[in-house]
């Protein structure tokens, strides 16, 4: 009897799990089948039906009309330089604030920490004014700098926390051979932080890649559109007449992230959770 009752007992749990899988995966599956439908298919058949004809051309039309090759390149041009600067500056500052000893380091760490609270709206107007006056609003440079700066508070704080776990003697010992603390940072600190850097980079990658507020303001010109702004504009201009290509464009942006997720899912999950706890 015990196996039967135990089996019955598991039914609510199994139903919950089935429900979870359904509500997570089905919208994405639904999005995919709709990306393959023609316009008449949309108007004549229920949305949950499979496509009458598998219209793969939607992907070509979507790619071209949504300007995806430009917007994806723009997003890459912005994201990776910002990530590199962020990791380099953030790790160095974390090391300086946690390993090295000087007056006022607690205050500076606190100053960085305060930045986590500041909403983007509080800095965006002066930044736009300044970029406009300097004459760099026609390039992606402001976005690279802004993402570097806005990512620093969390990055510095996380790196400082990771450095705290490493005994200082390791760094001190290296100086016996005559290395400076700067050398010790590059030859010992950075390599030891490999995993931490990967975690930080993952957290910041999604922040930057998915950002909309700064991108709307600094990448509003068509040639500067990042993938998020480009997709939104595409939906506004053509979304109400080109259903299939719009779904296809959404699928492409989701698909890129899916590939990344298939490769790195456990690191991504751990990284984002660590970012929240440390923040």
């Amino acid at each position: 009897m015990s196996t039967i009752t135990r089996g019955l007992r598991r039914i609510p749990a199994l139903l919950t799990i089935a429900f979870l899988i359904l509500i997570t995966a089905y919208p994405l599956f639904w999005m995919f089948i709709n990306s393959l439908k023609s316009n008449s298919d949309f108007l004549n058949n229920p949305s949950y039906a499979l496509p009458e004809v598998w219209t793969w051309e939607n992907y070509v039309t979507g790619w071209e009309t949504a300007n995806l090759s430009t917007t994806i390149v723009n997003s890459i041009i912005v994201t990776f330089p910002a990530l590199i600067l962020l990791v380099l500056f953030g790790t160095a500052a974390g090391y300086a604030l946690e390993v090295l000893v000087f007056k006022g380091r607690g205050t500076i760490l606190l100053l960085f920490l305060a930045g986590i609270m500041i909403p983007g709206q509080m800095i965006v107007l002066p930044l736009f004014t300044a970029s406009f006056n300097i004459g760099i609003t026609g390039s992606l440079l402001p976005l690279i700098l802004i993402y570097t700066a806005t990512g620093l508070p969390l990055t510095v704080f996380m790196m400082a926390t990771y450095f705290r776990a490493i005994p200082r003697e390791i760094f001190e010992a290296s100086t016996i051979d005559g290395a400076s603390m700067t050398r010790a940072f590059f030859s010992i600190g950075m390599p030891m932080m490999r995993n931490a850097i990967l975690t930080v980079a993952i957290v910041q990658f999604f922040q930057i890649w998915n950002d909309l507020l700064f991108a709307l303001i600094f990448a509003g010109q068509r040639k500067l559109n990042t993938i998020q702004v480009g997709l939104l504009n595409f939906s506004g201009e053509y979304g109400s007449i080109n259903y299939g290509p719009l779904f296809a464009a959404i699928c492409i942006t989701v698909g890129g992230i899916l590939v990344l997720y298939l490769v790195l899912n456990q690191q991504i999950i751990k990284g984002l959770a660590a970012g929240a706890v440390k923040g």
Binding site: F89, G90, A93, A96, I123, L152, S180, M181, F185
Partner: peptide
Amino acid sequence: AIVLLLTPALLVYTLIMLVPV
């Protein structure tokens, strides 16, 4: 080392977040 390692981050953070606030 302190100046070299801390300055870039502090400078970017100050110019792009603190000053605009």
